[in-house]
């Protein structure tokens, strides 16, 4: 019961921080920031990060990390670009093959991490460079062999970047992924296993959980999420380049961590990550609307992340201490 209350409080604090940020930027930038269109854009910008973030949240809950999401997006985008450029296959088949490539990339990560036992950070750092190199190798080239950006503007595909009313398709996809991701995490055997693996691998293995398999599934899910993110990114850009997802990998991680998913594993959830992603997108948008030099934006972003995380850590330490004192008291009685 106590645990439940704590996590609810943590959620409220996350939301409060988001509200404070919105108020702050509204005060500083006025209606330039505070208008319906801007909020629709913020949610749209959040979407791809949050979709990929579902998988990355799982990875972080198992005490892992995935640095290769940006590169998986690039491989998937380039695979679809090749099919688009060289075949007449229907668009759904193209998307399906793209998703399969993403799943295979994730499976490869899962294999080297789960089965071979390479530490997550190093393994995905390696596959980050591998997948990026593969993207360059398979990139669509023009007659002179120079890599070009492949336009993908056929209406049946580009429609994925459009909106019905105020809702972009990508936002609807995000809502689906977040809801499904949260249910999978909280109400299924797999979700319980993910938490168990993150909390204590040895204990999980001894209580009969197949740790290697769980981790493999997690990284495969990350691959699928990244592939879906890539589909929406290329549909929005209406083209595929080798630069897709360059530097993207840190966004879902930052979103998850700001949303209360602990890098040490075993805690946090998908909804928290979504709030974190909204927070980061609001920060990005707000800083932009202040009309400052690019350079200052970087500094302010860094400072705000540190402040938020510092506040979060101070709060957590306090709760831990309170819980310990409570425990000691109960022990005395």
């Amino acid at each position: 019961m106590k645990q439940m209350k704590q996590s609810t409080l943590r959620r409220l604090i996350s939301i409060a921080m988001l509200v404070v940020l919105i108020i702050l930027f509204s005060a500083l930038a006025g209606t330039k920031f505070l208008n319906a269109n801007n909020f629709i854009e913020i949610v749209r910008d959040t979407s791809v990060v949050a979709i990929v973030g579902v998988g990355v949240t799982y990875a972080i809950i198992t005490a892992g990390i995935d640095l290769s999401t940006g590169s998986i997006m690039a491989v998937v985008g380039m695979t679809m670009a090749n099919i688009y450029a060289y075949t007449l296959w229907p668009i759904p088949i193209m998307i399906l093959l793209g998703l399969i490539v993403g799943v295979l990339c994730g499976l490869f990560n899962g294999y080297i991490i789960g089965k071979i036992g390479i530490p997550e950070f190093i393994g995905t750092l390696a596959t980050m460079t591998i997948f990026r190199a593969v993207t360059y190798i398979i990139a669509v080239k023009d007659a002179n062999g120079v890599i070009m950006s492949q336009p993908m503007n056929i209406s049946t595909y580009a429609v994925l970047g459009y909106a019905i009313g105020p809702f972009y398709f990508v936002v609807l996809a995000m809502i689906f992924f977040v809801v499904a991701g949260q249910i999978l995490l909280k109400y299924t055997r797999l979700g319980t296993n993910i938490y168990a693996v993150g909390a204590n691998k040895k204990a999980a293995a001894l209580s009969g959980i197949d740790v290697a398999k769980t981790r493999m599934i997690v990284y495969t899910i990350v691959g699928l999420c990244a592939a879906v993110g890539s589909v929406f990114t290329t549909a929005r850009l209406q083209s595929a380049t080798t630069a897709i997802g360059d530097g993207f990998e840190f966004n879902p991680i930052a979103a998850a961590v700001v949303g209360g998913v602990a890098l040490s594993g075993g805690s946090g959830d998908v909804v928290g990550m979504l709030i974190g992603a909204l927070f980061m997108a609001t920060l990005e948008s707000g800083v932009q609307k202040l009309d400052m030099n690019n350079a200052y934006q970087y500094v302010i972003k860094g400072v705000i992340i540190i402040l938020v995380v510092m506040f979060d850590a101070a709060y957590k330490n306090r709760m831990d201490r309170a819980a310990k004192e409570q425990g000691a008291k109960e022990g005395m009685e």
Binding site: F250, N293, A295, Y298, I300, K301, G302, I306, A313
Partner: peptide, 23 residues
């Protein structure tokens, strides 16, 4: 002091240093 993961702190300062260099 704040028991923050090094990953996060240096992730944030990376952005700060880049901004400072640009300034």
């Amino acid at each position: 002091r704040f028991h923050i993961p090094a990953f996060l702190v240096t992730f944030a300062t990376q952005s700060i240093f880049l901004g400072l260099s640009m300034i």
